[in-house]
Design a protein around this nucleic acid. Structure first.
Lengths: 221, 221
DNA sequence: GTAATAGTGTCTCTTAGACAATATGCT
DNA sequence: AGCATATTGTCTAAGAGACACTATTAC
């Protein structure tokens, strides 16, 4: 046994988990993925999917988050980003609990499979969930933090292209941002800002056709 | 023993610490407080002051950071802010280690007393330390993150008044910001922005006198 | 008066919101 | 042609940097 675990014996270490705050943009706005807990505590309550940190399996925190995504949701999540740490004696009835929260934005059509200890996965309105005191533990606060930080980034036009299709039109980008931010954006100004940042590049001669004027297709740049 | 500690038995939990990234504004710019380690590992190396999370003593992470400040530095640190979490199998030779980093800005004249396991406390240039690979563990990266985030806040004029004297002149505020950001600011523009945000209020009839024109004194607002 | 710092004014450039005008493909 | 959406252009206001000017005290 390592010296670190000797320390563990001298002072008990907190019950440490990784929680995933997976968001997506639905037709009504930002959504967050919650799972109905199978137990052992807060059974039946909706909570962020998460799992125990396994120092025998996980090389670091990022790897732990990826493993938990795979186990609980059946999928690898690129672009998981560390969001915050919550720790305290009273946030979990089982004792002193430490949660490292990871955040990611999912494409709308991502396929998920509820893993062990999750009875059902469902998408909820992110703003409702961020203010829903009936969620398990303090997950309401974790969601609020993740939503605020995502909005801050999108507001600054740091776009999460991993959640986009390979090719997209500028109108689609704008609609995406409007749904994240829950407010309308000016078309002209929005395109000017996109062009200034140089974060998208047109695909020469590629257009999305529909019932009216075709739209130039773009890729991340 | 609580259920959480039953979980600890089933899966070993990481060696969890709180590290303090204490910054201050010196005459040459931003400085960070480092302690020379007394052991057991990395003895003699400079590192952020920190300590083991004690779930029997600390109600939550913030309380843990306060306790560590008291034990290691002999002082209470108001306005400690959670900065980030670093965790991995290889960052501490003793085994899987998780560090929750807290950041605070200290007044320049704060009195400190090196606590147990610290042989000496010393202020270093923050930019040098953020690029100094000879520091213990990965503390170089923790410092870089804290410095970047503090600069971001000061850039947005979210000023850490806790590090200010009770009363101050606008020139003193500007000098403070210039030392944090390591660049010059325009006086007129700086005062305009301060006034717009309404974050300082003049003390009617109170002036700082010196060898030349007296300066209006302000307080946080 | 001179030096030194405090405080203000003006000009301009950049950014972005509001809103209008034009372009293009479909039916 | 008429519709719906794409794309561009113009006007304006806010914010901030550059820089110069004025103000006030000590000596």
């Amino acid at each position: 046994m390592s010296a670190a675990n000797d320390e563990n014996r001298k002072h008990p270490m907190p019950f440490t988990r990784v929680e995933l705050c997976l968001l997506r943009v639905g037709e009504q706005g930002l959504q967050v993925l919650l799972g109905r807990r199978a137990g052992p505590v807060e059974a039946g309550a909706w909570a962020l999917p998460g799992g125990v940190l396994r120092i025998d399996l996980d090389a670091d925190l990022d790897a732990a988050a990826q493993r938990v995504a795979k186990e609980r949701l059946g999928i690898a999540l690129p672009y998981l980003r560390q969001q915050a740490a919550f720790g305290g004696a009273t946030r979990d009835a089982r004792g002193w609990a430490l949660s490292i929260v990871y955040r990611a934005l999912a494409p709308f059509d991502m396929a998920l499979h509820a893993g062990k200890r999750i009875e059902e996965l469902r998408w909820f309105s992110a703003d409702d969930a961020a203010a829903d005191a009936s969620l398990a533990f303090d997950h309401e606060a974790l969601i609020a933090g993740a939503v605020a930080d995502l909005r801050f980034e999108v507001e600054a036009l740091n776009l999460p292209f991993e959640a986009f299709p390979e090719q997209f039109t500028l109108t689609e980008v704008q609609t995406f941002c409007e749904l994240v931010l829950a407010r309308r954006l000016d078309k002209s100004s929005f395109r000017r800002r996109l062009a200034e940042r140089g974060c998208v590049a047109p695909l020469a001669g590629q257009f999305r056709t529909g019932a009216n004027r075709p739209a130039q297709l773009y890729v991340p740049a």
